[in-house]
Simulated scan of single mutants.
Amino acid sequence: MEYVALTGISDSAISELKDHQLRTIEIRTPQNFFTSLNVGVGDDIFLTHTSIQDLTRGNTGIIAKVIKHQLSTHRTITGNDMFFEEHETMMIRLQLQAKGIARISKVLSNEIGKETRVVAEDMCFYEAR
């Protein structure tokens, strides 16, 4: 099945998602931000700890369902009598529910600045070792 893929997710976040079934993650990296921008509530996505540069057939990860999708902007203003500096960042918060473990069978797109997409197949427990 074809999925949008979020790469470079920490092992601890993936483990917590597996263990607790519901987890909210914040997406700040540019590649994952662009990838998750058009993800909607109810969509299934693929998450892996593998970096986008190392994404290949055989990499494992977790399939999760998007429960909530929130786009937010954070603005910070610092300064003194001489200057002011304004810094603005955007992030996406995804609340996810774990569905199962999967293995990539084909990488469809992993170009920088474009949506990362893979074809992944569900794995049985005994195959995940």
Rank of each mutant, 00 (worst) to 15 (best):
T116I: 15
E111C: 02
G8P: 13
S109Q: 12
V4T: 14
M90F: 02
K65H: 15
Q21N: 14
H20E: 11
T50H: 03
T7R: 03
Q21I: 07
R23I: 13
E2M: 01
R129N: 13
A128M: 05
I67R: 12
V4S: 05
F84L: 10
K99Y: 00
S36V: 04
G40V: 06
T35Q: 08
Q95M: 09
T76F: 03
G113V: 07
G100A: 04
S72H: 08
M90N: 03
R75E: 08
G42P: 15
G58H: 01
R117I: 12
K65M: 05
G61Y: 00
R117G: 04
E2F: 00
I27S: 03
T24L: 02
R75G: 02
K114D: 13
E85S: 12
T7I: 03
I14T: 08
M91V: 01
F46K: 03
V66S: 06
E2H: 05
K106Y: 02
L94M: 09
D81R: 15
Y126T: 07
V119P: 00
T50V: 11
G79P: 14
P30L: 06
R57N: 05
T50Q: 06
R28E: 09
I77G: 01
G58M: 00
L71W: 08
G100I: 02
T116Y: 04
